[in-house]
Design a protein around this nucleic acid. Structure first.
Lengths: 189, 189
DNA sequence: TCATTCACATGACAACGTCACACGAAGAGC
DNA sequence: GCTCTTCGTGTGACGTTGTCATGTGAATGA
């Protein structure tokens, strides 16, 4: 039933899942290869049969996170039952929600993916394209949609990063991340 | 001439400077306590006479970086020779320039400062207040200036973070960070 | 001059990423 | 059914890291 390559693929998946879980639960310091192997039910050296080094394992976690966001956006794009502006707001708040629920994985997603991880770069590019699709529906002119999309994406990311870093305190700025996203869409899109 | 406490303070400064330099030159991985001590002319254990652990040393680096930005803003605020809107643009592009010139230190500045580092929190708060001062001069209503300031700060930070992470490629978004900052100020401030 | 203080050097330890090597079961060929 | 090969995995080992305990020596105050 379970061929050798299938079980190998399952182990690889288990390693990525274990790393993502440990990252969520204890932050980057908790993601040791020994802990990852342990949670995945293998030894500390097993990951090296699937990844050249720890960095590539983390890149796989980032790739998986981007793909999860991509699936959210896919569902949003497929559902034609709502206005384009609504879709845009949901896309942006959806990304924000990911950043809030999984702050460490989110930080990993936006860390610099070196050229050594082409699958991570591809996943990011695909998801960005989906964002652009949603934004173009609101803006109309697809040429003008790209810079606007870049600004929206960057700004929302900045809001999430400021939130997660504790730099967006309501006392200091008299506002919240949710309000800022609304304000942003209002002024930009 | 050089009393004992003076030399101790000098060593502390040398440690922070060495850590900042190593961070600039080789990224976070290059900042080992052994390398920091070596560059500062002391041994690997010497930092523990000045900081409880490595995290506190890095917090001191972040604090110094924030204070450097604060000095920039001070000069900007003191100089009454230019329009408020010009000052705002210079403040935001100044922060962006710091992020470009010292990407790793910049990332450290916006990392979550735990409550264990009150001096870092204070430095951030002071600099944010200076931003608010500059923004209030443009907005007029100081009450309305705070959320606007939060959005500007977050957005610019997002732009810098996207740039440094390689996520703001001109091919994808048909724009640059500089253009986005201009567009941002145009639409928001 | 002597006792004290305090910054610093040094040895040691556990944990980490990584590599080399050994093992053992699944699959291919006869 | 048997044998050989392949390949995912387990294990021991090594260098490096952050950290602590201990020792040392020079500056300080009486």
């Amino acid at each position: 039933m379970v061929s050798r390559v299938e079980s190998a693929a399952a182990t690889r998946r288990a390693l990525v899942d274990a790393a993502a879980e440990l990252l969520d639960e204890g932050g980057p310091d908790a993601v040791t290869l020994r802990a990852v192997g342990g949670r995945a039910g293998v030894s500390r050296g097993a990951p090296y049969g699937h990844f050249p080094d720890k960095e590539h394992l983390l890149a796989a976690v980032a790739t998986k996170s981007w793909e999860a966001v991509g699936e959210q956006l896919d569902a949003l794009i497929t559902d034609r039952g709502q206005a384009p502006s609504e879709r845009l707001e949901q896309a942006l708040t959806g990304l924000m929600e990911v950043g809030r629920r999984h702050p460490h994985a989110y930080a990993l997603m936006f860390a610099a993916p070196t050229a050594e991880h082409p699958e991570a770069v591809a996943a990011v590019s695909r998801t960005h394209d989906q964002f652009l699709t949603i934004i173009a529906d609101v803006i109309g002119d697809p040429q003008r949609a790209r810079p606007i999309g870049g600004l929206l994406m960057s700004s929302v990311h900045g809001i999430v990063a400021m939130e997660n870093g504790g730099h967006l305190t309501p006392e200091k700025w008299q506002t919240t991340g949710d309000e800022l996203v609304k304000l942003l869409i209002d002024r930009i899109a």
